[in-house]
């Protein structure tokens, strides 16, 4: 196959120029604190609380997206029902809507005087201004990833195979579990990873619905902003670098896992 050198060369060059070199700047700036200073920033009670909130809420949101995204993709590919095209056209909306608008719209819906929030309030559930609200916002902004990665793969699953499984005496749930699930799983994992990654760093939509209480509903990107407000660039980049390393390790693990699964299937 021709073209390895130019394509890989350009890929690495562009990746370096746009992503890696600029990101290296974050580590460079944070290193100005020295190891002890860095450690002190990232192990402070407040930063740890914010990091575990950001990563925890993002994980829950990504799981929600994985479950419902898979159902949505399944329904879109396999069934016909009125309004399907319309819903299909909406899926990518969270990418186009500025995050602040999304945050304001979601808060309006989920606050106690909102369309959804007022119903939930009767059940004693508070969403807006609680960590639950953070999960709602993160689910919204990561929603397209799972649907859009699972959908094309699901379309490629050969129905002949399912029929064969059925003729061989497999029950429907066995076919789904043994034939369809393994084929779809790698793409589901990719979708999960992308929506998780996006949710971890989300700021614009979350701050409107979060309540922003230190130790309770304060996300890590807000801490970065707070440090910038104090003109503390080093502290800000220290938190940013920590988030980056954690996200990178998680993404790498997921990608390796996914490649391993693909090889085994």
């Amino acid at each position: 196959m021709p073209g390895l050198t130019p394509t890989l060369g350009f890929t690495l060059f562009y990746l370096g120029m746009i992503v890696l070199i600029p990101l290296a700047g974050v580590f460079f700036k944070a290193s100005g604190l020295g190891f002890a200073g860095l450690w002190k920033v990232i192990t402070s009670e407040r930063v740890l609380a914010a990091l575990s909130l950001s990563f925890g809420a993002a994980a829950i949101a990504a799981v929600l997206n994985a479950i419902f995204g898979a159902i949505v993709a399944w329904v879109f590919v396999r069934y016909e029902f009125p309004g399907k095209r319309l819903f299909d056209a909406f899926i990518d909306l969270p990418f186009a809507l500025p995050t602040a608008v999304a945050g304001i719209a979601l808060t309006a819906l989920y606050s106690e005087n909102g369309w959804i929030g007022s119903v939930l309030a009767h059940a004693g559930i508070k969403v807006a201004y609680t960590p639950l609200g953070i999960i709602v916002a993160m689910t919204f902004i990561g929603l397209p990833f799972v649907v859009r990665t699972v959908e094309p793969v699901l379309r490629e699953v050969e129905r002949d195979l399912e029929e064969a499984a059925a003729t061989l005496g497999a029950r429907r749930w066995q076919t789904v579990l043994r034939v369809i699930a393994p084929a779809v799983f790698p793409s589901l994992v990719t979708g999960f990873a992308l929506s998780f990654a996006r949710a971890v760093g989300e700021y614009g939509s979350v701050i409107f619905i979060a309540g922003n209480f230190p130790m309770v509903s304060e996300i890590a990107p807000l801490l970065i902003i707070i440090k910038l407000e104090e003109f503390d660039y080093k502290g800000a980049t220290a938190v940013a670098a920590t988030m980056l390393v954690l996200s990178f390790l998680l993404l790498l693990t997921i990608n390796l896992l996914q490649a391993w699964v693909r090889r085994r299937v």
Binding site: I104, E112, G114, Y129, F208, G211, L222, I225
Partner: peptide, 20 residues
């Protein structure tokens, strides 16, 4: 204080439109 909005404008929305 039930909500700590990041800006004055956000706080206004919380008070005036969300009824908090």
């Amino acid at each position: 204080v039930p909500v700590l909005d990041t800006g004055g404008r956000g706080a206004t929305t919380t008070f005036a439109q969300r009824g908090v």
